Computed example of a mutant assay.
Amino acid sequence: MTGAHGGTTARRRPAWISVITKVELGLAATALAVLFLLVLVQAAQRYLPVGGWSWTGELARFCLVWVTFTVAGVLVTTDSHIALQLVDNVKNPKVVRFVRVLASAIVAVIGAGFAAEAWELMSSQGQLKSPSLRMPLTFLYLFPFLGFLSTAVRGAVAAVVFAVRGVPAPVGTTEVQSA
């Protein structure tokens, strides 16, 4: 299994990262399954003689948000996020290491900033409720907050790991690109 930068994603990870990854993937899979079922219900409602339920569309949109942001941190750890691979062709391991550390640090800072904004939304939107479900919007913003927090922590960990251990070698080799 390889990531966007050609490194292996099956390398050893601490147990707590594996547990958090499984929880995040489980939440995302649940939200995706609920999203799928709600879209089927919406499609079926068109052909039934009863009125539609407006909450199904609203919850489906919320599930899409939750799926998207819940797995953001997982993408950082598995190196599966969208990335430019130009640096991977550079032969100097110091340059590759520097760019990967810098990129991971930037991801961590941006994730922390978004987590802070999601926290602000959770704090300030407590009185507001969604139109159909009457769900407090604090709950809507909980999963983006957790996803961005996970992204920030995982980005920081990746930056430290790349700085200390080097960048994983491209597929087909077993050595680490270190300076």
Rank of each mutant, 00 (worst) to 15 (best):
T2G: 10
A4E: 13
A4R: 15
H5L: 05
G6I: 01
G7L: 05
G7A: 15
G7H: 00
G7I: 00
G7W: 00
T9S: 11
A10H: 07
R11P: 01
P14D: 07
A15S: 09
A15M: 07
W16F: 12
W16H: 14
W16L: 12
W16P: 01
I17T: 14
S18R: 07
S18Y: 01
V19R: 11
I20H: 09
T21H: 15
T21P: 06
K22N: 08
K22I: 04
K22Y: 10
K22G: 11
K22H: 09
V23R: 06
V23Y: 09
E24Q: 14
E24M: 14
G26V: 06
G26M: 09
G26E: 08
L27Y: 03
L27Q: 04
L27W: 02
A29Q: 08
A29P: 00
A29G: 06
A29M: 12
T30H: 02
A31E: 10
A31S: 14
L32S: 03
L32Q: 06
L32M: 13
A33L: 15
A33K: 05
A33G: 04
V34H: 12
L35V: 00
L35M: 08
L37H: 08
L37K: 06
L38T: 03
V39Y: 14
V39M: 13
A44H: 07
A44E: 14
Q45F: 02
Q45D: 13
R46W: 09
R46Q: 09
Y47V: 05
L48R: 08
V50F: 15
G51H: 14
G52T: 01
G52E: 11
T56F: 12
T56M: 07
G57M: 03
E58P: 05
E58F: 02
F62Y: 04
F62K: 01
C63E: 09
C63G: 01
C63I: 02
L64K: 02
V65C: 12
W66V: 14
W66F: 11
V67I: 13
V67E: 03
T68P: 05
T68F: 15
F69G: 01
A72N: 05
G73A: 02
V74S: 00
L75V: 02
L75H: 15
V76C: 07
T78S: 12
D79W: 03
S80K: 13
S80E: 15
I82S: 12
I82A: 14
I82Y: 07
L84K: 10
Q85L: 03
Q85V: 04
L86V: 04
V87D: 05
V87W: 01
V87I: 11
D88K: 02
D88R: 02
D88S: 09
N89V: 14
V90M: 12
K91M: 06
K91D: 11
K91N: 06
K91Q: 09
N92T: 03
N92K: 12
P93F: 09
P93N: 08
P93I: 07
P93S: 06
V96W: 00
V96H: 02
F98H: 12
V99N: 05
V101T: 00
V101Y: 05
